[in-house]
Design a protein around this nucleic acid. Structure first.
Lengths: 169, 169
DNA sequence: AATCGCTTTCAGTATTTCTTGAAAGTTTTA
DNA sequence: TAAAACTTTCAAGAAATACTGAAAGCGATT
């Protein structure tokens, strides 16, 4: 197999993975393409490599830039924009976790806090069970939240060192 | 606010959360509905509560059953099927992690293993960088894999105890 | 100030994913 | 064995999501 072929497989797989996790396929593929590219890429190159339209490319490059996974670079003498993708997988993972935390976990935590604090007059068995459930979900969400926060602050090596020791048999 | 209203909010939020994570909205809602219900529910009840069709209800209940998050129960004297949802949030989390691991992480690991073992003749700079990337992604994926495996075996309290101590300031 | 090279936007279209509802299947009851 | 009670399937339709391409924007160059 050639390197080119291997890279294509990687890009495809990354796209598939992304789409299963609520990240659009093209966005994931563009990012993968940048990961396997030594050089910065132009919109044109991305378009032709993935066979997508200009609008689509542009939109997803912007989104990736918003996520902090892609940076615009200027090539001296060149007029068009070039882009490089973050290649450090740990940084990528942290970045994605961070964004999804604020977008998804935080709102849920907010709702759960509301539901917990509700002053419900009639406390029948049913109500009590519901409150118990809300509390449990809240507990879990809070713990996940703290875990993610911790991960943000930790160094990768430190994190995995501790983590794998924890589960070593 | 009434309990009923609170429950509805919970169901809606759960549905939204699910759909952001590649789990279809209705499936997540049905499960949420079962979590907040004291009793087992029939297909009819689910249909009317969520205003969905019989086919839709049936399909998603089956999917939830396949995921091991819902069990069929038989009520004495009753002919129709009733269903109860798993309510232990830790168990739910583990179950979802387990299924998604086999469906998504395992295939990626397999691909990465292939790509790692490729015998590429010409070893230019470009190829070396690609191999480095594949290796790094592989490393991370493996660690995540082991982490999840560890979580499967661990008790909830033990897990969070260790985890939160790790990140305690 | 007009043209060039490139980027951005967005209405319309295509694709994917979900949902419906009616028909076929299954099990129980009479 | 026929009807009733309930479940399952699936083709067609609806809704959500992603993509295209042409037009408008924008700044540099002549």
């Amino acid at each position: 197999m050639q390197v080119k072929e291997a890279k294509q497989q990687f890009v495809q797989a990354w796209g598939a993975l992304g789409s299963q996790w609520g990240i659009n396929k093209t966005m994931a593929q563009i990012h993968a393409l940048m990961m396997v590219s030594t050089d910065a890429l132009s919109t044109e190159e991305i378009m032709s490599e993935l066979s997508i339209s200009r609008g689509n490319a542009n939109m997803n490059i912007r989104e990736l830039t918003d996520w902090g996974l892609v940076t615009k670079v200027f090539k001296p003498g060149e007029r068009r924009d070039y882009f490089v993708g973050e290649k450090d997988v740990w940084k990528i993972a942290r970045q994605v976790a961070k964004i999804r935390k604020t977008r998804e976990l935080d709102p849920i935590l907010k709702l759960l806090t509301n539901l917990k604090e509700l002053d419900i007059p009639v406390k029948n068995e049913d109500t009590k069970q519901f409150q118990k459930l809300v509390n449990e979900v809240y507990q879990l969400a809070t713990k996940v939240d703290r875990l993610i926060e911790g991960v943000f602050k930790a160094e990768e090596s430190w994190f995995w060192d501790k983590m794998l020791k924890l589960f070593a048999k």
